[in-house]
Design a protein around this nucleic acid. Sequence first.
DNA 1: AGAGTATTTAGATATTTGTCTAAATAACTA
DNA 2: TAGTTATTTAGACAAATATCTAAATACTCT
Lengths: 84, 84
Amino acid sequence: MNSLFKALNDETRRKIVELLKKKDMNAGEIAEQFNISKPSISHHLDILKRADLITSEKKGQFVEYSLNTSILEDLINWILTLKK
Amino acid sequence: MNSLFKALNDETRRKIVELLKKKDMNAGEIAEQFNISKPSISHHLDILKRADLITSEKKGQFVEYSLNTSILEDLINWILTLKK
DNA sequence: AGAGTATTTAGATATTTGTCTAAATAACTA
DNA sequence: TAGTTATTTAGACAAATATCTAAATACTCT
């Protein structure tokens, strides 16, 4: 739960997640969408991956990232317990 | 959205929110539940309040805090857009 | 094998954050 | 009014975080 909230507590990472909702993208394509260096984006991707919010797959020299929506169930359930 | 994720990105604050789900509590009662100084708890309450997750009402010399679940709608909606 | 491209790792740095103690503010009580 | 209790504000500090550049790794292609 901690890693999930931590991962989403950053505007850049939330935007990455929103991008990946539309379609899978490789690291370079993701980085293009931001005015942030590639190493920084790589770091954000790592945090999202540790939180299980995204998965990655090596495709030749590219690394393709995909959204993993199943983990969001946990988040929704936590929130719903608060709303009774 | 930013302040909401920031507010929830802390174990102590999430526990405060869970406590307030059960019943309204004043600042001192909340602080009793943690091994953290009262000023620190006061700071956490301030962050939760800025995120609109809780409200406060002065009652004599006490300040009573309540959970505001309506703001959680925004959070759920954001998550649901990701799940399509 | 060597050059070029994609991505990550390492190390540095400035900012943010959670915590503390001490002091200030506010309200009750004798 | 003076003392006590409840809470917040102020200021300091260590740890965490987002970012950068430079270098390393991994893959492609001629």
